[in-house]
Design a protein around this nucleic acid. Structure first.
Ligand SMILES: [Mn+2]
Ligand SMILES: [Mn+2]
Ligand SMILES: [Mn+2]
Ligand SMILES: [Mn+2]
Lengths: 223, 223
DNA sequence: CAACTTTTTTTGATTGATCAAAATTTCCAA
DNA sequence: TTGGAAATTTTGATCAATCAAAAAAAGTTG
């Protein structure tokens, strides 16, 4: 029923809310998330409001309704299951699946998605560590892990998520031994130098602050 | 580059040409193939002509250009590879894949299609026996087999293709023991009664003339 | 070949998605 | 508190895809 465009708006709004920890998303955030002009967003927000998918408050932004949130979570589920499906069946790498899933998520049926979910054994996370919402619309695990940027030299950490889908970034990580589930030791986190370096099993990787904000880890307690 | 709509028009035009054995497709054929009004088709034919994907001759119809034909064959390839991929990976049945592929064919990248082709081992036909065009745009095998309606009682035949994607039709066939590659014996082909009946390994199936025109077979010579 | 039928095109309109640029509102800092 | 700066909305426009209904062309048939 909702158009591809509406599906993208809803998903973007939800992602902004999750990332900012707020219930509201602003016109500007949405415009930059979707690379469209602010005026275009304003008019779409009215449309979403009219179809009761969101509540629009001029100059404040929007908030998804229960119905809108449901659809948005559904898109997140589709996207993430499709990514994992492509990795598992065709051996695509984590830098190849995002753009593909971005388009496919609008083209597949609910039945196909359920089949994929079953085929994959109801997985919890996608190839980037992003949690996969369950079929009933529950979205949990969105705040697992902490940014690598917040760790200190000497800590042992496990890579649990990357919050940046840029293929170049993902390839950089792969090439430097960073993969989901791997464990490494933070060598140095220097505000002055603006870098964080981590010793991974195979290689030493050094990231700038901004990149280290996008790489999520869990502290590992030796036992 | 071409929109989803243009892709669908091109594919439909090619299919009409293949089916009628002509180089031209008429406005009316296209309109009914796509379930849009004739006036809409006329205006799209001008658009296709303007983008040199087809040559439009008022009151005569259109003919694909080399470029348009290439794109159309590409869509056929995508559609058929996707159908087979869904059957192979997720065990979907032949009545479940057409609609799914109809939408997915516009959403996947060329790279993904090549991956699928490789994964499937460069298959020749899809789950309906439709030939899969090769990557270089060659479309062969479109006229393999003859309609079951053209066989006579006593002949032994192998099912090679179904030229009707309607799920109900395909399920009717499955439920009566008709599947690709199966061999059966024609019991009776009666113009008077308007039916053709075939003894399949497990079951006896009886089809009306129209249905028997859509089921393609090869004569099997006992040896 | 004339009249009727069928097919196709034209016309005029709508809807969804978008933009650039102007107008407005809100925010912040002096 | 007040004057820019920043964000947002409004305005006016375009483009793709569609439809219904009127007009025109082509085809058919007695
Ligand atoms: Mn998308
Ligand atoms: Mn992901
Ligand atoms: Mn299609
Ligand atoms: Mn097929």
């Amino acid at each position: 029923m909702p158009s591809l465009t509406v599906e993208n708006y809803l998903k973007t709004i939800l992602q902004i809310c999750v990332q900012t920890g707020s219930e509201w998303a602003s016109t500007g955030q949405i415009a930059s998330g979707l690379s469209v002009s602010p005026g275009t967003v304003t008019s779409m927000l009215k449309t979403l409001s009219d179809s009761s998918l969101a509540k629009y408050k001029p100059y404040s932004g929007v908030r998804l309704t229960k119905q809108g949130r449901m659809l948005a979570v559904r898109m997140l589920r589709r996207h993430r299951l499709l990514e994992l499906f492509l990795v598992k069946t065709l051996d695509l790498t984590w830098d190849q699946v995002h753009d593909e899933a971005e388009r496919m998520e609008h083209a597949v049926s609910d039945e196909l998605i359920d089949r994929i979910d079953q085929y994959l054994g109801h997985p919890e996370v996608d190839p980037h560590g992003d949690p996969i919402p369950s079929a009933d619309g529950t979205l949990s695990g969105e705040n697992a892990g902490i940014p690598l940027a917040e760790t200190e030299g000497g800590e042992t950490v496990r890579i649990v998520r990357v919050r940046n889908q840029a293929p170049e970034f993902l390839r950089y990580l792969s090439e430097h031994g960073v993969a989901l589930g791997e464990v490494g030791t933070v060598q140095e986190n220097s505000d002055a130098g603006g870098i964080v370096s981590v010793q991974m099993p195979e290689k030493l990787v050094t990231l700038g602050q901004a990149a280290a904000e996008m790489l999520y880890v869990e502290r590992v307690t030796a036992d």
